[in-house]
Design a protein around this nucleic acid. Structure first.
Length: 653
RNA sequence: GCCGGAGUAGCUCAGCUGGUAGAGCGACGCUCUUGUAAAGCGUGGGUCGGGGGUUCGAGUCCCCCCUCCGGCUCCA
């Protein structure tokens, strides 16, 4: 028979030839490099797949493009997961296996170890050693297709309940009659495939960490032990990956927060940052920006209490839906709760007067301090805290104003993100199972958000069932330095709260109408946003955000007076400036200023003192020559006004 | 909340099988007075996360709790 290579060249092969045969027919080199085969532009298939006359055949090697979400690395990571399961089940007989997929940057496998066995990274060496043996043995991955009954019998007799459950679900949900099994060496796994031809294709791998993981992601089910690993086609690629991880760790906001003296945490108030002066400088810049932009866009700033009679929370629905995450106390015998959200407070402001359609939309903004009892195991530096300062706003508007207001919120968000060079992902979250309000309300609310997104031509992903209990929302997500995704902004549409609190406005028809509420946060919270900023800039803030914008470095003690005069002048110009007055060498002062990531170092000695200048040094860029103090001030002011994106802000991106 | 790991000086960390704690950096003092990424010498500094227990004796072994780290679940 004849098959055709990607360039159209025909290749003559015997009947029943496989992808591997085709590769070998082309050349020994390709046969050695071959990982899988694509037939007629289809998905990756095992190299052992039989070809048919007239097939267009493409041999997948490490450099092949992905297809159907699978790429060459996916293959060997999938292989590595099987090999790891092989090693683990040999080392700890009786271990129950569940699933082991490739993921971004690696793979994992979830196991249930025999009673009394716990695994930690101290066991990795043993497991890796055993894996290396299997890889060296060059064991082929052999696919067999077996009837469901046979597969069930096999895994039941081996006491592998998770595999049995997976097969039963495949039968129930997909009506399958056969399942595929893959064997490598002594290990047979239920697996859809595909796999590379043999274990030897795994050229470099490393086990990374262990974790608990619920079976099927369900917290009410068995907790399994997950082992994460990664695999590459070469030792160099693996080393490069490890190096990248190391660099990412260096920009972890918790580490930089400590190094740069931005904030701290105390055991005395877990999940609640203590802001040092340097961190507060960043906070205040952000706050100024936020405040002036809100004002410009027709928001009026308010401030509301943090402690309320629980009656309020019963009325709002938080008592029923959110109690477990709230803090309660008693004041003179009266049950009170700390606010986890600002909306009921803003509703009180709305209700303080009768409202007319002429007043709408009413836009209240607040840097609202809320407390949420986040479970202990979920706290994470500034990114997941219990003490949260939201850049909150609530818009009360008429139904026909919704679309414009939602668009206004999104545009505001993009305006802010653009300053930092952020490109967040949008997600539309729809009605959750546990909710308040009628289906008809939810239809309208979801429809309005979708209409706004479409009108702006924005790309978004739908998260079914992920909405707030009172309404659907559009969320804006960002990724941190080690690839974890965090929600920043949110725009939420709410028909429920206005109803629960009986909000009204008088329409042009002189009848009472019900307003709609839009809940909106753009930075999300100051805490989280600053955490993301620290990682984004790797602590090297643009001038306008830098906690210390310039450090004056006198060459010798006799220049201290002049240094202080420069300091006073810069401070008078509104700059955050310090003098390094230690009796240290210039080299030392520069080194320390560099480590503090100060954008500007101003060296002053005899020459500068005589001429009224400073010797400028830009962070990371070295000596930039002498300039007059006034000229530096001018330059700094311009840079600050531009918010410095071009100067240094993009470095962290 | 769940699984696993960790908590020793301000920071980074050492401390073997139990015998009353150590380094580097920082801090402080003195000397040096310095021209673009670490001057020299010296001095302090620790209820070993907290509480119980075992032991003649606990940083070290056991139990409980707290906090942090990596995940999982959750994140209105």
């Amino acid at each position: 028979m004849n098959v055709f290579l990607p360039d159209g060249t025909p290749l003559e092969l015997p009947e029943g030839a496989t992808g591997a045969d085709a590769a070998r027919a082309v050349g020994e080199g390709l046969a050695r490099a071959a990982l899988a085969v694509r037939i007629n532009g289809g998905p990756y298939r095992d190299l052992a797949t039989r070809l048919r006359d007239g097939d267009r055949v493409e041999i997948v090697t490490r450099d092949s493009p992905p297809a159907d979400g699978i790429d060459p690395l996916w293959l060997i990571r999938h292989d590595a997961a099987h090999v790891m399961a092989t090693a683990v089940t040999e080392l700890w007989p009786g271990t129950k296996v569940s699933i082991g997929p490739p993921i971004d940057n690696g793979f994992y496998y979830d196991f249930e170890f025999p009673e009394g066995v716990t695994i930690s990274d101290a066991d990795f060496e043993r497991i890796e050693q055993r894996m290396r043996e299997h890889i060296k043995a060059d064991e082929p991955f052999e696919r067999t297709e077996v009837p469901v009954a046979e597969a069930l019998e096999r895994f039941r007799s081996q006491e592998q309940p998770y595999k049995v459950e997976l097969i039963e679900d495949l039968v129930r949900n997909e009506g399958v009659e056969t399942v595929s099994l893959y064997r490598n060496g002594p290990f047979v796994d239920l697996c859809r495939g595909p796999h590379a031809p043999s274990t030897k294709r795994i050229k470099a791998f490393k086990l990374m960490s262990t974790a608990g993981a619920y079976w099927r992601g369900d917290a009410s089910r068995q907790m399994l032990t997950r082992i994460y690993g990664t695999a590459f086609f070469s030792k160099e690629d693996l080393d490069e990956h490890l190096e990248r991880l190391e660099q990412a760790r260096a920009r972890d906001h918790r580490r930089l927060g400590k190094e740069l003296g931005l904030f701290m945490f105390s055991e005395l108030s877990p999940g609640s940052p203590f802001w040092q002066p340097a961190g507060m400088a960043i906070w205040n810049e952000l706050s100024d920006l936020w405040r002036s932009e809100n004002r410009r866009r027709g928001y009026r700033e308010v401030k509301t209490p943090i402690l309320y009679d629980v009656e309020l929370w019963k009325r709002s629905g938080h008592w029923d839906k959110y109690q477990d995450n709230m803090y309660f106390t008693e004041v003179e015998g009266r049950p009170m709760g700390l606010k986890p959200m600002n909306c009921p407070a803003h509703i009180q402001l709305y209700r303080d007067q009768r409202r007319s359609y002429r007043d709408l939309p009413i836009r209240y903004s607040e840097q609202g301090l809320v407390h949420r009892h986040e479970p202990g195991g979920t706290l994470h530096g500034l990114l997941r805290v219990r003490h949260i300062t939201q850049d909150d706003a609530h818009i009360f508007c008429a139904e026909e104003q919704i679309e414009d207001e939602v668009i206004g919120c999104l545009e505001f968000g993009f305006f802010l993100y653009d300053i930092f060079g952020f490109e967040p992902r949008l997600e539309l979250s729809t009605r959750p199972e546990s909710r308040i309000g009628s289906d008809e309300m939810w239809d309208r609310a979801e429809g309005a958000l979708e209409a706004a997104l479409r009108r702006q031509g924005l790309e978004y992903q739908v998260n079914e069932g992920d909405g707030a209990f009172y309404g659907p929302k559009i969320d804006l997500h960002m990724t941190d330095s080690i690839g974890r995704s965090w929600q920043l902004g949110t725009v939420q549409l709410d028909y429920s709260m206005p109803e629960r609190f009986g909000l009204e406005y008088t329409g042009a028809d002189n009848a009472e109408h019900r307003p709609v509420m839009i809940h909106r946060a753009l930075l999300g919270s100051f805490e989280r946003f600053i955490g993301i900023l620290i990682e984004h800039y790797a602590g090297e803030f643009p001038l306008w955000l830098a906690p210390v914008q310039a450090i004056v470095l006198p060459i010798a003690d006799r220049h201290l007076d002049y240094a202080r005069r420069v300091e006073a002048e810069l401070r008078g110009a509104g700059l955050r400036v310090e003098v390094d007055d230690r009796s240290e060498s210039v080299g030392r002062k520069i080194r320390d200023a560099e480590l503090r990531k100060a954008p500007y170092m101003l060296v002053v000695g005899d020459k500068e003192q005589e001429t009224g200048q400073v010797a400028l040094r830009r962070h990371r860029e070295g000596d930039a020559g002498a300039v007059a103090v006034e000229a530096f001030i001018e330059r700094a002011r311009e840079e600050i006004a531009a918010r410095g994106r071009a100067e240094s802000g993009t470095r962290g991106g």
